[in-house]
Write a protein that binds this DNA or RNA. Sequence first.
DNA 1: TGTTTTTTTGATAATAATTATCATTTATAA
DNA 2: TTATAAATGATAATTATTATCAAAAAAACA
Lengths: 136, 136
Amino acid sequence: MKKYSKQREIILESLRERKDHPTAEKLFMDLKKQMPELGIATVYRNLTELCEEGLITKVKSKKGPDRYDGNELPHIHFECKKCGDFIDIYLTETQIKQMHMSMKKLSTEVEAEYENSEIYLNGICKKCKKIAEKVV
Amino acid sequence: MKKYSKQREIILESLRERKDHPTAEKLFMDLKKQMPELGIATVYRNLTELCEEGLITKVKSKKGPDRYDGNELPHIHFECKKCGDFIDIYLTETQIKQMHMSMKKLSTEVEAEYENSEIYLNGICKKCKKIAEKVV
DNA sequence: TGTTTTTTTGATAATAATTATCATTTATAA
DNA sequence: TTATAAATGATAATTATTATCAAAAAAACA
């Protein structure tokens, strides 16, 4: 079994554990605490590799830089336009199958070969809704 | 009625007409032909404004820089992982309503206020499929 | 085990995309 | 008209990401 570098392990493990969707920079800053010799280039390098291998996914943000997601369960993303946070919304087996079917069908319409899809929901998250209420 | 700058008009008009999803740079180069004095900063400035006003939308690409979309009809995006092109896939009234209902419901699960959604399909486009066949 | 080869790292330079600055131009209002 | 405000375009600055490369770490070999 191939052994990966300590840096790669820690990057993947951290993304698997955390529930937010950090930018490369944020992840780097956080990991530097437990591994001060870590370099930013190593973080970017490994994130790119892990994405290519399908072990993590890159999430495109409306505003800031790209984010990274290590959540293995099937889900879609809700992005809050106030705070910029991403929230995972889980789908049931049925919902996933249904969605894939629809997407595949739509791809057929344009004679394209469908592989996968990404769904982004936009709006205001629970937390920011509450803050808005207090102000009013 | 407020009159907008010639630059802004030409940017919006161009995006409404063209069916691709150009980057700011691409749009700038193309528009420079009919308006040589145009500056890249003006293009970025107006694209940002037009997005904020909801007259156009920003499309995030898997690889390169952001793209801009002036198509007013409800549609989703298919991104070809070979050539990087974006293809619009149109939805019927029924499909849109159905989708919005599902998304709204999913947002309620996380107690968020749903506004809109974006769907990205990934795979290989018609054109690239044909090229692949020829090579084999 | 010690040595060679390969891989990966981390500092930093380079690049790419986007935004900020600001004097000048253009449009609107007085 | 002249004054005020808004938008432009050249370019500097910033941000995010990738490339370079000597050194460190790991794996393969003898």
